[in-house]
Amino acid sequence: MSGEQQTDRRGFLADGARVVGVVSAGVLGGYLAGQRGQAEENRWQIDPDKCVGCGNCATHCVLDESAVKCVQCFDMCGFCNRCTGYYTLDGLDSRDTAAEDLLCPTEAIIRTFVEGKAGQNFYEYTIDTDACIGCAMCVKGCALMNGSLYLQVMHDRCVNCNECAIAVACPSDAFVNVSADKPYRLKRIALGVMRQKAGKSDTAAQKLLGQVHADE
């Protein structure tokens, strides 16, 4: 008799605990779901104004090929003949496209002649995203001049880890959480130009601005 009573009491306690558990799980879920209604989910992104081009992005990403790639902001580019993001400092003189004179280790920067004007030749530098490994060599080189090259986490590749391995390794705290509907960043000084362009009904600029997170 006493054994049965004990079983009953234990069963009652277990039932009670179960009900409490299920209810609290429900409350927690409801609370978090309600909280979620107020904002978008987060994604990782690099704040290009904070990035120092240390090179960790190329090596610390959990993907075999880093999700971080270089982006060329043409509206900040000087289209220089002697590009310090394209040539090594020794290569600047010869302007020889031999491998030892180029900064990019994977030939991911494509140099195309645009126009000759006032005795100057101007070249456009575009990034071959598939070849880029996010090493930031060009970013550091370009920082000597206009700083139009900058790194971004590419969200067609990024798997959005809980704790971004590059963010842990980033020396300048440049990895920030941005909302998933606007998961990219621009350098602060490029924002104004881009807005102006978008104002002149430039669809490409409007599209980019739609993807860019801007907190001022």
Binding site: C73, C80, M145, N146, L208
Partner: peptide, 28 residues
């Protein structure tokens, strides 16, 4: 607009300055 640029962006006769493009978010 860009006072901090060391070298201004040139204006070409028949080559508009392209705009950077970034890929869309892709959920796996």
């Amino acid at each position: 607009e860009t006072p901090e640029l060391m070298f201004p962006v040139p204006e070409f006769s028949d080559h508009p300055i392209p705009t950077a493009t970034v890929p869309e978010v892709q959920g796996q």
